[in-house]
């Protein structure tokens, strides 16, 4: 049985704001319960303002007012050293950062200081957690970069001298040099061109396998999840609506939103009309009653409008929050055909 490295329970995190007397509460993360296991890539999908970025902020222990954790716990287990992000002190969190928990960001420039050579940035981030300095540190970094097929020369370069793909490789190097057990990758390939994107995804996948780390991979692009994630969780309006093994999510989705996301992806060689989902994502300040997806859901019935569907387990590793999950079918023929094959 694989071990869990991250356990999130009943997590609620809201933005509570007060601007010149106008009070607003945005329920960005509303009752999420999930686990991430050692040595897996857990994909999180969701559209903009679905709360996925806020959820990641909690996981990364980057909780700043007006964003607050209202309820629940976020427990990491780093080699028998448990820590709960929601109650840990600043010093405790500082101690796990980069050594156990690291990030790969969307824009490499937010990590790489433009006026410092890459080598200096590595020292800033990794020297202390690794407890190395001078030549030993440099050797360690060079060996690590070699694994990412980067020459040691990049350490002498400034960020602007590297291409976008190279920079993203460097940030991956930076995030993995301390061999952290948990890596949060937030849209790491969104800004990259298709050819480079594929290479970078490959790289993340390889290094994850080699180190046996757990990765939370956040992107809105379902085709990236298809190729990288072991399990995928879908966030909609602050809630986890479905979670399951990647293959099942694509070929036998059990939530109408997932089914739609999968079906809306166009493919070369297939000209059939792609369905479009009407309506807009709900406002997190004022979400709809009952199931939050019901105003846009083709299967919605009266019950969906009144009662919130619980996230129930419907198969091995597969959970969904839909009253009518048994009626959800893949929407396009390719996935339908492959799905039958997969189930058979």
């Amino acid at each position: 049985m694989t071990q869990d490295i991250l356990k999130v329970e009943d997590l609620k995190a809201y933005y509570q704001m007060n601007y010149f007397g106008i009070e607003r509460e945005v329920r960005a993360v509303d009752d999420i319960t999930m686990t991430v296991r050692k040595n897996e890539v857990y994909g999180i999908a969701g559209e903009s303002s679905s709360g996925k970025t806020s959820f990641i902020k909690v996981l990364a222990a980057a909780i700043r007012p007006p964003f607050r954790v209202i309820n629940g716990s976020v427990k990491y287990d780093f080699n028998g050293k448990p820590i709960d992000i929601t109650t840990a002190s600043e010093a405790e969190i500082e101690a796990i950062r980069w050594k156990h928990l690291s990030y790969i960001m969307q824009g490499s420039m937010s990590v790489l200081n433009p006026v410092r050579r890459i080598g200096r940035t590595f020292e800033d981030f990794a020297a202390r957690p690794l407890g190395l300095s001078g030549r030993a540190f440099r050797e360690r970094v060079v060996t690590h970069l070699a694994k990412l097929k980067l020459s040691p020369n990049v350490l002498n370069a400034y960020p602007h001298e590297l291409s976008g793909g190279m920079r993203q490789r460097v940030t991956i190097g930076l995030a993995t040099v301390c061999h952290p057990e948990f890596i949060i990758a937030d849209e790491p390939t969104t800004a990259l061109d298709v050819v480079v994107q594929k290479e970078v995804l490959q790289l993340i996948r390889d290094i994850q396998k080699e180190m046996g780390a757990a990765v939370i991979f956040v992107t809105h692009d379902m085709s990236v999840h298809a190729n990288v994630a072991d399990r995928v969780g879908i966030i909609y309006a602050g809630r986890l609506v479905e979670e399951g093994p990647t293959r099942e999510m694509f070929f036998a989705p059990k939530h109408p939103y997932t089914a739609h996301l999968v079906a809306s992806l166009p493919r070369i060689g297939d000209t059939s009309q792609r369905p479009a989902l009407e309506g807009r994502p709900p406002s997190l300040a004022d979400p709809p009653q009952g199931c939050r997806f019901h105003p846009r859901c083709p299967l919605a019935v009266d019950k969906c409008r009144r009662e919130v569907p619980p996230l129930e387990t419907i198969g091995k590793d597969h959970r969904t929050a839909c009253w009518r999950w048994q009626d959800v079918k893949p929407l396009d023929h390719v996935h339908r055909a492959n799905g039958q094959e997969a189930i058979a």
Partner: peptide, 20 residues
């Protein structure tokens, strides 16, 4: 051809085929 090969396919989702 390279561009086409780099398009991420969902037809074998979960198989982890990425190599370029």
């Amino acid at each position: 051809r390279l561009l086409k090969a780099s398009v991420l396919s969902t037809e074998d989702a979960g198989a982890g085929k990425l190599a370029t």
